[in-house]
Simulated scan of single mutants.
Amino acid sequence: MPRTPQYDRPAPPGYVYADEASRLTGRAIETLYKDRQKAPEDNPGPKSETLNRKAVWRLTDIAEWLEQQMNPQLDPERAAESRPPEPRRPRKTSQARRTKRPAKAYDSAA
């Protein structure tokens, strides 16, 4: 189990370390660090930076990310790809199954 990072001094003004970013976003610390490794266009989390060899998150970036999560914008290019769900097929009843395949008689002499 990963340890919670311990810091000897507070984060610079306007920034937070991973433990506070985790509390603000509701994402696990490990998830925030994994998101840092992804390409910016594939990163599902808030943007992060490195200051003094430590990962930090801007409070403005976290607030922007949270706002985006609450009010997602529909991408007009991908809107055409969505379609309604397929209609459900009615379930076959056991009576219908019996009429199609009669049960074979059990032959005890065999």
Rank of each mutant, 00 (worst) to 15 (best):
A79L: 14
R58M: 05
R89F: 04
A55Q: 08
P44Y: 09
R89M: 11
D35E: 02
D75S: 09
L59K: 15
Q68G: 13
W57L: 04
P76A: 13
P46R: 04
A39G: 08
L51V: 08
G45I: 02
Q69H: 03
P44G: 05
E86I: 11
P40W: 03
I62P: 06
A63I: 12
R89T: 07
Y33V: 06
R97T: 00
W57T: 02
A39F: 09
V56T: 13
R88H: 10
D35N: 02
R89L: 14
T50H: 05
A79N: 08
T50E: 08
P87N: 03
L59Q: 07
P44D: 10
W65A: 12
K92W: 10
L66W: 00
R53T: 10
T93I: 01
E81Q: 15
E64S: 11
P76G: 07
L66Q: 08
D42E: 15
Q68N: 13
K54V: 00
P85H: 14
Q68W: 13
T93D: 01
D75K: 04
P46I: 03
R88I: 04
R78N: 07
E49H: 05
E41K: 14
Q73K: 15
A79S: 14
K54A: 02
T93C: 00
P40C: 09
D42R: 09
P87M: 07
L32Y: 13
S82M: 15
D75F: 01
E41N: 10
L32V: 08
R91D: 12
A79K: 13
N71S: 11
Q95W: 03
R89C: 07
A63T: 10
G45T: 01
N52D: 10
K92D: 04
Q73S: 11
P72S: 13
W65E: 05
G45P: 05
R98D: 07
